[in-house]
Design a protein around this nucleic acid. Structure first.
Length: 267
DNA sequence: AATGGGACCTGCGCGC
DNA sequence: TGCGCGCAGGTCCCAT
């Protein structure tokens, strides 16, 4: 499931691979992933435009185009961007001016491609919380103060803070020794500070290792990301905690698999 | 207001 | 072996 580190990895690779290139053709194998406008207009308005700039906001990728419009890409759970692609399993392929394909793969069809006038006007973007790296300790403490929500649910809320999904939420809380069901406002000042530090540290490390290849995520090159090796709790139910040798526990929280060490992370 | 559940989807792994 | 089922989780939507 691509979260901030995976999308950032993709963004950096795309900067090197396709920036400044022209889209010369669009091959649509499944129109469902094109959310707006309709397929015909999407193709027409993308043809012969140049990719001027690539931006990441939370888990969203944005291509700013020479036409003045923007192409936004949300990978959701199983989206992949592959370059150079072969077009074989793609939902949509973009043929570029270098003759190569940029493939958008997405087995589950949750992903979203949108061609919009201005990405900043998207509701999703307007409501998006701050980037973790833009947060100061004081600001973060203030944000947590009145929130009674369970801390894990809160840090996965894209309106609260952008970029953290289920995998990294589990990892971050383990490292900060905070139980996922703690009410956000119950954290001490020290815990809040440590939580923000671990959010930044874990995300930075994951970017360094080019993301976590669980499920379908791969880099643009098709290679896996290496951060899985460093996971402490995610997908480790009943395996020993690396810190205390207790057993990693799995519970459901907000319908999502939640992994933690009940010894290290007290309620 | 905040929380919980379902919907959207497909592929995989499990149990029988 | 093969089939059917449950589960995986990002986001939106609806009900309570």
């Amino acid at each position: 499931m691509p979260e901030l580190p995976e999308v950032e990895t993709i963004k950096r690779e795309l900067d090197k691979a396709i920036l400044g290139k022209k889209v010369v053709d669009i091959i649509v194998n499944n129109a469902k992933v094109i959310r707006e406008p309709k397929k015909e207009r999407f193709i027409k308005e993308l043809k012969n435009i140049v990719i001027k700039k690539i931006i990441r906001k939370g888990k969203l990728l944005i291509f700013e185009l020479s036409s003045g419009k923007d192409l936004t890409i949300h990978l959701k759970m199983t989206g992949q961007l592959i370059y150079p692609g072969n077009g074989k399993t793609s939902r949509v392929s973009f043929k570029l001016s270098d003759g190569k394909l940029l493939d958008f793969n997405d087995s589950r069809l949750f992903g979203e491609l949108k061609l919009v006038d201005n990405w900043q006007n998207l509701k999703f973007v307007k409501e998006l919380g701050l980037e973790p790296f833009d947060l100061t300790e004081n600001k973060f403490k203030e944000m947590l103060e009145k929130k009674k929500t369970k801390i894990k649910i809160l840090i996965m809320d894209q309106k609260f803070i952008s970029g953290i999904g289920n995998l990294y939420a589990n990892e971050v809380l383990f490292r900060a020794k905070i139980h996922p069901q703690r009410p956000a406002s119950s954290l001490s000042g020290k815990e809040k500070g440590l939580l923000l530090k671990e959010i930044k540290d874990v995300l930075s490390e994951a970017i360094h290792y080019k993301g976590s290849s669980v499920d379908q995520y791969v880099q643009v090159s098709g290679r896996p990301g290496e951060y899985v090796k460093y996971h402490q709790v995610y997908d480790r139910e009943n395996e020993p905690c690396f810190r205390c040798k207790g057993k990693v526990k799995k519970i459901a929280l907000g319908g999502r698999g939640t992994y933690f060490c009940p010894v290290c992370q007290k309620l």
